[in-house]
Simulated scan of single mutants.
Amino acid sequence: MRRNIATGSAWEGVVGYSRAVRVGDQVHVAGTTAIRDGRVVGPGDAYTQARVALEIVVEALAACGATPADVVRTRMFVTDIRDWEAVGRAHGEVFATVRPASTMVQVSALIDPDLLVEIEADAVVGSPSGSGSGPGSPEVTPP
């Protein structure tokens, strides 16, 4: 069974997408940026934007019955690769013990020139995760 999660953004209908989609035990969270209440949070600050984007990702996961511990892959898109450390630090604060497969690439632009970071996530609900040192899922605190 397919479950679409919407945020109510006007763009969802225009573009035809969902914030997240759950099919079976798989959850896919769409590219997520630091936009809250129609405005960019943290213009000029890649770390803050990554943290806010990750908060939104965690909220979408929760709406699908998943947690950060279920995440198996993330993709981070940055407009300036020199921000890799700040974005990576924010990512590590959420996923340090989960350690999903992850990619970070530089892109020429995002939908708004004030946006510096966009993050996607894929999860498998109930998947054992962690550092490989023991069974079960680690506890992960959302941002």
Results as ranks from 00 to 15, higher is better:
84 W>C: 02
67 T>L: 09
41 V>E: 13
80 D>W: 02
137 S>L: 09
135 P>R: 08
119 I>E: 02
63 A>T: 09
95 F>T: 13
121 A>E: 12
78 V>Q: 08
82 R>G: 13
135 P>L: 04
124 V>C: 07
78 V>L: 08
110 L>V: 10
44 G>E: 13
39 R>Q: 03
91 H>I: 03
104 M>E: 00
35 I>V: 15
42 G>R: 05
108 S>L: 10
122 D>R: 01
30 A>T: 09
41 V>F: 02
111 I>E: 01
125 V>S: 11
15 V>W: 00
1 M>S: 09
37 D>Q: 08
139 E>N: 09
38 G>P: 04
8 G>C: 09
57 V>W: 13
121 A>I: 10
69 A>N: 14
82 R>D: 13
50 A>P: 15
81 I>P: 00
58 V>F: 11
5 I>R: 06
94 V>F: 13
88 G>P: 12
71 V>S: 06
106 Q>P: 08
111 I>N: 02
54 L>G: 14
21 V>C: 13
84 W>H: 08
87 V>Y: 01
110 L>F: 12
61 L>E: 01
130 G>V: 14
65 G>Q: 07
77 F>N: 09
121 A>N: 13
43 P>V: 08
108 S>T: 15
77 F>V: 14
84 W>N: 04
76 M>E: 14
23 V>C: 00
49 Q>F: 04
90 A>C: 08
128 P>T: 10
118 E>Y: 07
